[in-house]
Design a protein around this nucleic acid. Structure first.
Length: 581
RNA sequence: GCGCCUGUAGCUCAACCGGAUAGAGCACCGGCCUUCUAAGCCGGGGGUUAGAGGUUCGAGUCCUCUCAGGCGCGCCA
């Protein structure tokens, strides 16, 4: 609808250009917005004000010329000038009513568009280190990433979702050692446990399973291990333990312990995500980049173009030449590549797989990382404009007024699974995306759980269930409703609440498109609340099942269309649309 | 100290690349169930958009400074 108005405006402006009333210009950015109040019509444009200066006239006069040259159209009832020079468009009733059959005909496809033009798009999100179960902080990234992915799919992007598994690097070695030490303790060895190793109970579970499968294959004498705890620096202590473990268990056995931890945690993560309604097309292993030499090749390429230099025994990347604050280490003094080195290879790989749009969803604590990744892409001759990094601020969990603290290392955190078990998937998913991603999120467990008026999820779902209920009533009363016939009666929709609902239903495709291209799923959440409100108001003001056949049919098709849009919108957020509540 | 994000009603938050009288929910006050689910609806009070300048027809939105909060500034990931 908006597009049609835009087209009319463009034609009028073209006429004015040809008459030289306004100067010709190449790209006219015509902005049409949905009017806020109905007294300003259905749509409004500010072109007259933006063009007035160029046309050397005043806005209201120009607005009049524009209106005078608008082509005839049956979708418009009237057009008015208002305020400083706004042009307000009032839609004809028929145009409003036509949306009902459009929605019913398109069904689940209502709201789809092709602005994405099948652009190959990769969205990487969650990508939590496999060192423990997902906690509620990861949940926000999961819900947000999944929602953005769904929106992009709906708007015609060819989307692939990916989880990057950080299965290489020091954190994973710490995990392996944590498992190994718990395993030794489980067998009965009197060995301490470092405070900076992973403390969670899940480590014990993995250790016990390891013992069950491999018996005492990984036992080393405790008297050789205990001296390693004399080291005072906790970081050096754990490094010593890692080294001892690898050296004395042997690469092969160490890998078994390492993989026991990795695999077990990864399975948990996958299951939790599936339960949360989040599925990935691909799980990409960091280790694979190291093992198939992509990381080395990448570094060689940078060396060739003089992006690398040596300092203090390490290999540095000249990221400061490309907008970063400082240069960054790629190869440490000990010969190990840094996480950043893998990440350069990973982003190169993403481009080489043919993705034209690459989206990374990161926690806000990684923002300092953006400049170096973009720098690395430029250094490799790739356009960093393909890369879109979306930051998600942290979520703070509250139980009523009480703030719940957490940290992964200490093992004191609320997992995503626990959250879901407590508040349910629907509320969890909705609450996570309800706020703009760059806003800190206060997640109140009590509120999410409450099956009451304060909970927006139920408010929307209730609208859906109520509509389903009306149709059940219809059946009970034995009243016939034939959709195809009923659609012919939509001209009976003229009550103020009906017009409001029709107008809001028509907005849906715009909402989806805008939410998608700005990566803001919260817009959809707000829209659905608004739509649900329109419906509840209508429900309370007008009776649907009335004597008059035509009016009854018209109203039923309207709420049927409403039901469809609510269902479509909730589906995008992976929130269910119950038929009974 | 430097960089990024945030600051809107008592609380939690919206405000569509700068638009018209800044909007919702919660909380508070007052109404609506012999009629399709009251998990609902209607009405009311509540604001110097942290503060000060600037840009222009027009600023919560853009620029500068100040104040407050969060995060980052590793040869960790």
């Amino acid at each position: 609808m908006k597009k049609q108005i835009q087209e009319l405006l463009l034609q009028s402006l073209a006429t004015l250009e040809s008459k030289e009333i306004i100067p010709a210009s190449k790209d006219l950015a015509i902005k049409i917005e949905n009017s806020r109040g109905s007294e300003h019509g259905d749509f409004a444009s500010n072109v007259a004000m933006t063009l007035a200066k160029k046309a050397k006239t005043n806005p209201r006069q120009l607005a009049q010329s524009i209106i005078d040259h608008l082509p005839e159209s049956d979708i418009l009832d009237r057009v008015e000038i208002a305020g400083p020079g706004f042009i307000n468009f009032f839609l004809d009733q028929n145009a409003h009513q036509a949306i009902v059959s459009e929605i019913i005909n398109k069904g689940e496809q209502y709201g789809d568009s092709n602005v994405g033009a099948n652009t190959p798009t990769l969205i990487e999100f969650v990508s939590a280190n496999p060192t423990g179960p997902l906690h509620i902080g990861h949940g926000r990234g999961a819900a947000y990433g999944a929602a953005v992915a769904s929106l992009l799919k709906k708007t015609g992007f060819d989307v692939s979702c990916e989880y990057y598994i950080n299965d290489a690097g020091r954190q994973m070695d710490i995990l392996a050692v944590s498992v190994w030490l718990r395993y030794l303790q489980h067998i009965g060895a009197e060995i301490p446990f470092p405070e900076n190793a992973y403390q969670g109970d899940y480590i014990n579970d993995i250790a016990i399973k390891l013992h069950k499968e491999h018996i005492e294959k990984f036992v080393l004498p405790a008297e050789n291990i205990i001296p390693l705890f004399k080291e005072e620096d906790p970081e050096l202590k754990i490094d010593g333990l890692i080294k001892y473990c690898i050296d004395n268990l042997g690469e092969e056995n160490y890998r078994v312990v390492f993989d026991a931890g990795l695999d077990s945690i990864l399975i948990t993560i996958k299951n939790d995500l599936v339960g949360f309604g989040v599925e990935f097309n691909n799980w990409f292993s960091e280790r694979s980049l190291v093992e198939n030499n992509t990381v080395n090749q990448c570094i060689e390429k940078l060396v060739e173009n003089d992006w690398i230099y040596e300092k203090e025994g390490a290999q540095w990347f000249r990221s400061s030449k490309l907008g970063d604050e400082k240069d960054r280490v790629l190869i440490r003094e000990n010969g190990q590549a840094t996480y950043f080195a893998s990440d350069i290879a990973y982003h190169l790989n993403k481009v080489e797989r043919g993705f034209k749009k690459i989206i990374d969803v990161w926690g806000a604590d990684h923002h300092g990382y953006i400049a170096r990744v973009k720098a690395s892409m430029e250094a490799l001759g790739l356009s960093s404009e393909k890369l879109e990094i979306l930051l998600v601020q942290f979520a703070t969990l509250y139980r009523g007024k009480e703030k719940l603290q957490m940290s992964t290392r200490s093992g004191e955190f609320i997992t995503l699974k626990e959250l879901q078990d407590e508040v349910g998937k629907d509320a969890a998913r909705f609450f996570y995306i309800m706020r703009k991603s760059e806003q800190h999120l206060d997640f109140d467990l009590e509120l999410a759980k409450s099956e009451s008026n304060d909970n927006p999820v139920y408010y929307i779902q209730y609208a859906h269930a109520r509509i389903c209920s009306v149709f059940r009533q219809l059946t009970e009363k034995g009243i016939k409703y034939l959709q195809a016939d009923a659609l012919k009666d939509v001209s009976n929709l003229n009550e103020p609440h009906e017009i409001k609902l029709l107008a809001n239903l028509a907005r849906y495709p715009d909402v989806i498109e805008n939410a998608a291209i700005t990566y803001e799923p919260h817009q959809l959440a707000y829209y659905l609340k608004d739509l649900a409100n329109d419906f509840h108001t209508y429900y309370n003001a007008n009776q649907f099942i009335v004597e008059d056949n035509k009016i009854r049919n018209a109203r039923l098709t309207l709420i049927e269309a409403t039901r469809q849009v609510i269902k479509n919108g909730l589906a995008l957020l992976s929130v269910s649309a119950p038929e009974v509540m």
